[in-house]
Amino acid sequence: MTSFSNNGARTSDSDRRLIILTEGHTEPVTGKTATCVVRYRPEQVVALLDSTQAGRTTQELLSVGGDIPIVASLDDAPLANALMLGIAPSGGRIPPAWRKIILTAINRGMDVISGLHDFLCNDPEFANAAALKGVHLIDVRKNNERDVASRLNIREECLRVHTVGQDCSVGKMLVALELSNAMKARDISSKFVATGQTGIMVEGDGCPIDCVVSDFLSGAIEKQILEHQHHDVLFIEGQGSISHPRYSAVTLGLLHGCLPQAMILCYEVGRKAVYGMDYMPLKSLVELREVYETMANLMVPSRVIGVAMNSRKVSAEEAEKERERVRQELGLPVCDVIRHGPEDLLDPIQAMLPQTVAS
């Protein structure tokens, strides 16, 4: 993490030592911001703050981070110099019970980093306290995007791969990150394009697509494409799902703005209903592949070339059975990029690159 460029601040964080606030939410879904920062930036994390889980480790509760401790209060993490809000709840609101902890951190001279829709800098109590202490309130989602898409100067030799989902919170960001990192390991120039708060916190740049005025959404992601298309491959983080009643608008705007030539369809094994709406059954992978390809092809020739399964809730044996079932159903390579590694998805992506790059 080197900077958060979309909130107007260029923040060097080479010396940042984080305590990540997850009070009452130290689990992989609501706490996905904490989980991913611990996974990809563990050297910056001193501890997680959750009084309900104090004494345990992140490895126990999040399956990442080794012996990074979970503590009960700021007093238990004296080396921390910044507080990060580590949750990504529906609606993006700051839990009222967290206000006291945030104010305590500010009064101790700690920067506070948030990716929520409730902006710290717009809260008079937080802003006044921060001004008195000379600390920074960093709102990762804050942006001033005002450009519409133009579809000009797009370099077709740069392969754009977009992770799309059966639902929200199925691992689209993680898949894009893992594929980008693995492509770099093959000595191919690759860039992860972050489109949400957690991805921006991990990568250090990007655009918070779900907080951009709708007219400018496609233009905002197009700006990211233009900025980074000197790479051979861009892996663009997906948001929401085309079939989610709450988030389909941002999904479609992002899809049309990033103009992917290839898509990876992501889903969680065992999930039956829309996240946050248990009364609504999920659309099938077969149906969603057709819808994503139809929508993408309105703008550029595109197809789903692989499936990323999130199998964290099932055994290895169950995951293998599910993997084979989806392979047969869709006729595509399928893997869990954490459990199986990303190679099965990398090969068809690399095959789409110009021969001079792929070899």
Rank of each mutant, 00 (worst) to 15 (best):
T198Q: 03
G204F: 02
F216C: 04
A149S: 13
V250W: 10
N181H: 08
I188W: 00
V202W: 03
V170F: 13
L217H: 08
Q239N: 10
V213M: 06
A194L: 04
Q224H: 10
L179Q: 09
L226T: 04
I154N: 03
T195P: 14
Q239S: 09
L255H: 05
R246H: 11
V233Q: 05
Q224D: 00
C266W: 03
G219Q: 07
R155K: 15
V202I: 14
L177R: 09
G270P: 13
D187M: 02
K191E: 14
A220N: 03
S248V: 08
V212W: 00
E145D: 08
D232N: 13
P245L: 06
V202E: 00
R141T: 11
V250N: 03
G253Q: 08
C211R: 09
M263R: 04
E268C: 05
C266Y: 09
Q166A: 13
E222R: 05
M263H: 10
L152I: 05
L226N: 06
V213P: 02
S190L: 08
G196C: 12
A182R: 04
S190W: 01
V213N: 01
N181D: 13
P208N: 00
I154L: 11
P260V: 10
K142C: 04
A220V: 14
R141Y: 12
I209C: 03
S180T: 09
R271V: 12
G253N: 15
V213A: 05
V148W: 08
L265M: 14
L255D: 09
M183H: 05
D215T: 06
N144S: 10
I225R: 00
E156P: 03
Y247P: 05
L255P: 13
L254D: 06
D205A: 05
I209T: 06
F192H: 15
V164Y: 07
L265A: 06
E268W: 04
F235L: 15
M173D: 00
R151Q: 12
E222F: 06
S190M: 09
D187I: 05
Q229L: 09
Q197G: 11
T198A: 03
L254S: 13
L174Q: 11
G171Y: 01
N153H: 14
R271K: 13
A185E: 14
V212G: 03
N181F: 08
F216I: 09
R186W: 09
I154T: 06
C258R: 06
V170I: 15
L159A: 00
H244D: 14
D187V: 04
R186Y: 12
L234R: 03
E145Y: 13
S189M: 12
H231I: 00
N143W: 08
S150I: 15
E222I: 03
K184C: 08
F216L: 02
R141L: 12
A182Q: 08
A185V: 01
P208H: 06
N144C: 06
I200S: 01
L259Y: 10
S189I: 04
G206T: 07
P260G: 07
A149N: 01
A194D: 10
D147P: 00
N153F: 08
